[in-house]
Design a protein around this nucleic acid. Structure first.
Length: 412
DNA sequence: CGGCACATTACTGCCACAACGATCT
DNA sequence: CAAGATCGTTGTGGCAGTAATGTGC
C-alpha cells in the first residue's frame, strides 16, 4: 500500500498540514503554503513514518523513526524495553521556512544528505518568508520536558509536544527521555492552556530521519503544480474532514454519529491551525481527518480544549465506535467528539477571557476567509461520463433527449 | 432578549444516457 | 470455463426549489 502526497499524488508525503488535513511532500508543501498569508500560517509537522497518515509528534532516537501519538503509544507505551527509548519531540513550523530554519527545527533532517541532492537544498533555500517562523507570545522556549509532570498535577491536562506543534517551535533543543510508560502516558496528547503553567517547547535534536525520503521529496521538478491541481487534489483531501463539518454551516452543531462514521479511518480529530494562536489546542495529533481547527473555530463553544485523548478514552465512549477501533482509534474519536461537544468537564476554565475573545475572533475570521477560498469539488470517478455531461444539452439544467429542444448548449 | 422580515448560503432532486457490473445463455 | 448478450444500476453537470443560516431592526 503506497502513500502519496495529497497534493501531487506522486511524491511520498513527508509533512502533515493540520489545517488542510493533508499529507504533503516538501515541494508541494512549499508551493501550497506559499500561496498566501493565510496558508503560511498553517502549522505543519513531519508525517508519522509508521502509519503515514498522522502528524508525528515524537521521534524515537533508537528506531530512528518519527511517530504519531498512536504509533508511539503502540510502539512504546505498552512495551517495557521500548519505553526506555529516547524520544525527541518534533516541532511544527509555519510559513515557508528556509533551509537554515528547517535545519534548526529538525536537525536530523539535514544529516546525511544524499549525494546529488543539491537541487533540493537549493529549493529549500528558496523556501523563505519574511517573518520566518511564526511564534506565539506564550510559547516558551525549550526546557526539559520533564517539567511537564510538575505542571498539571494531574492527568487531565498535559502540555507537551502537541503544544509545541501548535505554538510553533521556539526554543533550544533537548532530548526527551521517557523512562516509563506512565511517564509516557503523561506526555502526549496534551494541550496547552494559557491559564496553565507554561510548557517547554523543546527543540529536537534528532540524529537522523529517513533522510533519503525527505530529500527525495524535495524534487519539485517532478511535480506538476498548478492551480487546478491544487484545487482538485487538495479539495479531495479536505473533503474527508470537511464533509463532517461543512454541512451545517460555520456554526454547526456537530453530529457525533457523523464523526463516528468517519472513524473507519478514525484519524478523527482536531488538529489545529487554531493552536497557533493558543486558542484551540491540539487534542490528538493522531486525529487528523475529523476536523481542521478551522472547523473547530466555527464551533460556538469557546472552550479551551485541554485533555489528553488517552485519559479521555479511558473514561468515555461513543456509540459510533466500532469494535474494530483500536485503542488509538478510541482515543481519537473520543477526543474529537468531546471537542465538538464543547468543553470537557475536566478542563479548567480559561481566565484570560480577553485574550481568548480576541484570538478567537481572529481565528473565526481566518476560518471564514479560508472557507471562502476553498473549493470542495467532488472527485470525478468516470471522466468519460463527465466529458459527456459537459457537452450535453439541457433545459433548465436538466439533460434533454437528443434532438429535443434545449435552452442551454455547453458547446455554445 | 425574543420575534420578525429579509438576505445569503447550503443542500437536494431532476433530467438523459453512456458506462459499468452482475447475471444469464 | 470462456465469450457474448442482456439488464439494472451508476454517475455526470446545471438549474430550480427548498431549507438552513445570518443579519438588521
Amino acid at each position: 500500500m503506497g502513500y502519496n502526497c495529497d497534493f501531487c499524488g506522486h511524491q511520498r508525503p513527508v509533512v502533515y498540514c493540520r489545517s488542510d488535513v493533508a499529507c504533503l511532500c516538501l515541494s508541494c508543501d512549499r508551493n501550497v503554503h506559499s500561496a498566501n498569508a493565510l496558508s503560511r500560517r498553517h502549522s505543519r509537522t513531519l508525517l508519522c513514518e509508521r502509519c503515514n497518515s498522522q502528524p508525528a509528534f515524537v521521534r524515537c532516537v533508537e528506531e530512528r523513526v518519527s511517530l504519531c501519538e498512536n504509533c508511539d503509544w503502540i510502539g512504546h507505551g505498552s512495551s517495557t524495553w521500548n519505553s526506555t527509548h529516547k524520544r525527541q519531540t518534533i516541532n511544527s513550523y509555519y510559513g515557508c521556512p528556509s533551509s537554515a530554519e528547517l535545519s534548526s527545527l529538525w536537525p536530523f533532517f539535514w544529516q546525511s544528505p544524499s549525494p546529488g541532492e543539491s537541487t533540493s537544498e537549493l529549493e529549500l533555500g528558496l523556501m523563505s518568508i519574511p517573518e520566518n517562523m511564526e511564534r506565539t507570545s506564550w510559547g516558551p522556549s525549550g526546557n526539559a520536558i520533564s517539567q511537564n509532570q510538575d505542571n498539571t498535577g494531574g492527568a487531565e491536562v498535559n502540555n507537551d509536544n502537541n503544544a509545541d506543534m501548535g505554538s510553533g517551535w521556539d526554543g533550544s533543543s533537548s532530548v526527551l527521555e521517557i523512562r516509563s510508560p506512565q511517564q509516557d502516558l503523561d506526555q502526549p496528547g496534551g494541550l496547552t492552556d494559557t491559564s496553565l503553567p507554561k510548557l517547554p517547547c523543546p527543540q529536537t535534536n534528532h540524529p537522523s530521519l529517513c533522510e533519503n525520503d525527505l530529500y527525495h521529496d524535495f524534487n519539485i521538478d517532478d511535480v506538476d503544480l498548478n492551480l487546478e491541481n491544487y484545487e482538485e487534489l487538495l479539495g479531495v483531501t479536505l473533503n474527508h474532514s470537511e464533509e463532517l463539518f461543512e454541512n451545517g454551516g460555520s456554526d454547526s452543531v456537530f453530529k457525533i454519529k457523523d464523526i463516528s462514521a468517519a472513524d473507519s479511518n478514525c484519524r478523527g480529530a482536531v488538529s489545529a491551525e487554531g493552536s497557533s494562536i493558543g486558542l484551540v489546542n491540539t487534542v490528538q495529533p493522531t486525529c487528523s481527518n475529523g476536523a481542521s481547527a478551522d472547523s473547530v473555530m466555527s464551533n460556538k463553544t469557546d472552550s479551551i480544549l485541554c485533555f489528553t485523548g488517552r485519559q479521555a478514552h479511558s473514561s468515555l465512549s461513543f456509540s459510533g465506535l466500532t469494535g474494530e477501533s483500536s485503542g488509538g482509534d478510541y482515543q481519537d474519536c473520543g477526543a474529537s467528539s468531546m471537542l465538538l461537544m464543547g468543553e470537557p468537564p475536566w478542563c479548567p476554565p480559561c481566565t484570560e477571557s480577553s485574550f481568548q475573545s480576541s484570538t478567537r475572533s481572529n481565528a473565526v475570521m481566518r476560518y471564514k476567509e479560508k472557507k471562502k477560498t476553498r473549493k470542495f469539488e467532488k472527485r470525478v470517478r468516470y471522466a468519460s461520463r463527465k466529458a459527456r455531461a459537459d457537452v450535453r444539452k439541457r433545459v433548465k439544467g436538466r439533460f434533454v433527449k437528443v434532438g429535443d429542444a434545449y435552452d442551454y448548449d455547453p458547446l455554445n
